[in-house]
Design a protein around this nucleic acid. Structure first.
Lengths: 209, 209
DNA sequence: ATAGTAAATGGACCATCGGTCAACTTGAGA
DNA sequence: TCTCAAGTTGACCGATGGTCCATTTACTAT
């Protein structure tokens, strides 16, 4: 018989088989090692090889798991963003649904700033990786896409007359600005949050232009 | 006699002697070659060696002249920024002195967007170079410093109650955001300028928060 | 159990990059 | 013309992201 005919699969039938146990273990080891290194060192000092060594695996394994340095950073960012994502979708106001757009937007941006403050090196590394990557565009980054959609949606609700998508890009772009990023790394996320609040308040009040 | 005693210098007395003619020629060749390459290729494809070859000089010469890749990019940016700088300092309103802060700010940001549109790859290259550089901070970039001072000064005039410096960083940060940068590269600087105008108008009208 | 197989592994290897350096050439002042 | 500081050069360096493939390992059907 031809074993592995697709039709003869048993109860474990799934189109893609589950990741092997050792692979899953290594994936975690790599993620945790990268996390730890980024907590203590600036991104340019965290090479893929160093991550691999710290995780106790070969460099090839990292690339096999994550495709590229960018892929690894993306995965780390995704982990951090998932919680926020959920709070936005179904958490209590003002972050979650129910509050006024202005309040939701200010709350969201404050949370993003806070997230940046707690993961400064990671955000910088992710940024740099995306920037360096060859065929990669920021628009392909699902986290960015979802943040942008949320922000531009809220702006459009409050100010249907402005270019909400553009302004959303502008507000989010702020996070990657070096002087601001270093503030965040130093823990001063309130200052950025206040800046967000001022801009958003002005934007929402300025309707009668 | 001991030639070159500092005290015995003749009419050509200057503390640093003029750049030699061949050196000046090469400096121009390198700048023009880099300019040309950046007009046609994304920054990561414009290596120092490629610039050197295109300019008809050795790689070492580029480093000798500009110190580093970052130095080269900075010089190119400085060339582009000088004109704007002067228009701001002594040109006619609304860009130059005389107009209301809001109008000046909107005009300035529109010009910056336009400059970005005409030199997209250069700005990206400069950005990337500064980001990659080791001991380098964006705060050390004199162009950025001067732009930031201008923008935050105007904001402070119109809204003495907000964190003008922070908001100035935020507005300028916009330029380096990838989705926006690619718009600029495509020539759509009006869209960014409109976004700037909306944010600034809101900010200046929102005083009675 | 066990055998067969796809998945996973690791580390030597590669191309490229920014940057350095020491030997060599050249322009310009005296 | 003569001298030497200034300029030039390209081989070389260390580091990095990424590739490759021979080898090992964890599943699964029997």
């Amino acid at each position: 018989m031809d074993r592995w005919s697709i039709l003869s699969m048993g109860k474990n039938c799934r189109m893609e088989r589950r990741e092997r146990a050792d692979a899953a273990r290594n994936r975690q080891a790599i993620l945790r090692a990268a996390e730890e290194l980024l907590r203590r060192h600036p991104p340019e000092q965290v090479s893929v090889e160093r991550v691999a060594t710290a995780a106790g695996v070969g460099k090839g394994t990292v690339f096999h798991r994550f495709g590229s340095r960018t892929g690894l950073m993306r995965e780390l960012m995704a982990e951090r963003a998932r919680e926020l994502e959920q709070a936005v979708a179904e958490g209590p106001p003002p972050l979650g649904p129910g509050a006024e757009p202005e309040a939701r937007l200010v709350a969201f941006l404050a949370r993003v700033a806070e997230l940046g403050a707690r993961n400064g090196n990671l955000m910088a590394a992710h940024e740099h990786a995306v920037l360096t990557a060859k065929g990669e565009r920021r628009e392909d980054n699902p986290i960015y896409v979802s943040w942008h959609r949320h922000v531009s949606g809220l702006i459009a609700e409050g100010r249907p007359d402005v270019d909400a998508e553009e302004i959303a890009h502008m507000l989010l772009g702020t996070l990657h600005m070096e002087p601001i990023a270093s503030q965040l790394r130093a823990g001063e996320h309130e200052r950025l949050a206040a800046g967000f609040a001022d801009l958003v308040k002005g934007l929402f009040r300025g309707a009668g232009g």
